[in-house]
Design a protein around this nucleic acid. Structure first.
Lengths: 226, 226
DNA sequence: GATAAATATGATAAAAATGTGAAAAGCTCA
DNA sequence: TGAGCTTTTCACATTTTTATCATATTTATC
């Protein structure tokens, strides 16, 4: 599962946006639907959806109905967003095949944790350790990097270098520090080797290449903010 | 057995519901009966029931009687729910052909564990554990692998290696990790032996061989998505 | 602007890792 | 024991990555 695709269904666009933002930042691709009917359309039209997040309360077709519909043809993981602590509903839901509940209001942390737990359980690739910054997602577990959702091929050293940069975001790194952090201590070659790797990294990262800033007379710095 | 079907028999609907919820959540299909007579009806009317969970105390026909009846025609696994620690009953029950006891009150974890253990033990098609990814189906129980529905012959090591790969989908695996996961800890041979096995696996998997990705400088990764 | 110092770039050489086929070593079962 | 199989080792071909170097470009400073 290169980049799990999640469909969020809620009639409140503010809520959709909220959820979407957190998930996108974690490297997921997120689609939106405003009600159950629209959700079904997207679910069947779009390529592979890896998870659904449904609000219970929706016009036209509510979360339960939608869930029931989907379950007729698919075992895709479903998370239900409910009002706080409605246990009766939860029992009903588990029978319908809901995988998890999140009761509103929820913290982003909870949301992301549940999503990752479920995708992991679903046998997928989750359980990952990821670092994200400025549209660049580095997945240590899968050893992959994606820029704006698009996979980028990096060599081993390039990956390690980027990892080091991203773990030290906003910090000016001298060539010596980089050498110590990424190369083995028994490396006594030219520090200018770093330049070459930075060059390749920048070019492979495309637009995002300039997240790696040159600090004159010192070294480099990875920074997403601005 | 794609989705084992379990019949829970208890006169207390609250208890039935409780048990059912946990099992449903684990992917079982659960039917309910309120007493022994009803249970027999369902058992003979319904298609294939894979397991029975019986409460001892029931009106009309208690758990023992029901068990005796069922055993006249079927060896379907039976779990008995009893009051805590009634050893006399247990002896009686084993003679009647009860497979397992769970004494009330029980934790959901115990329940699920026993159910899974028994289905697994029930051998044959039951408790089957399969992993699927990208058209490759690995059946741990049967120790078989099929690619696009066509059986593929693997040696023992090849099977174990593929199993390890598939259980760690999407995770970049170093040779060391693979060695630790698939070989015994007392193996001190060459890590390159992995390469050879990967080679054979790839060729035996045919098209699907390239689900096993090489990660340069690191090792391998099994990935189906893309 | 001119100059010196530092960095970027592209090409190329060197090194390292993997793929492959075959042979050797182990096992298993008549 | 020995045929038939699996597993491991090995040597060599191939591929990919990494390091180096010469040159171009950029930057800071005067």
């Amino acid at each position: 599962m290169e980049q799990p695709r999640i469909l969020i269904v809620d009639d409140e666009s503010r809520m959709r946006k909220l959820v979407k933002d957190f998930l996108v930042r974690k490297g997921y691709e997120v689609l939106e639907a405003g009600d159950g009917v629209e959700a079904l359309d997207i679910f069947y039209a779009e390529k592979q959806i890896d998870m659904l997040i449904l609000d219970v309360m929706m016009p036209r077709m509510d979360g339960w109905e939608l869930c029931k519909e989907i379950r007729k043809t698919s075992r895709v993981p479903i998370i239900m967003l409910t009002a706080r602590g409605d246990e009766r509903d939860e029992l009903l839901g588990f029978q319908l095949g809901v995988d998890e509940y999140i009761s509103k209001p929820f913290s982003p942390k909870i949301l992301v944790a549940r999503v990752e737990a479920i995708l992991r359980r679903a046998g997928g690739a989750a359980g990952e350790e990821k670092i994200e910054a400025g549209g660049v997602v580095l997945d240590k577990t899968a050893h992959t990097v994606a820029v704006d959702g698009k996979a980028v091929d990096l060599s081993y050293k390039e990956f390690e270098l980027l990892e080091f940069f991203m773990e030290n975001q906003g910090i000016a790194l001298s060539r010596e520090k980089i050498l110590n952090g990424v190369w083995n201590y028994d490396y006594f070659g030219d520090a200018r080797t770093i330049d070459t790797h930075v060059k390749k990294l920048r070019s492979k990262l495309g637009d995002k290449g300039d997240l790696i800033h040159t600090i004159w007379g010192l070294g480099y710095k990875f920074e997403a903010g601005e």
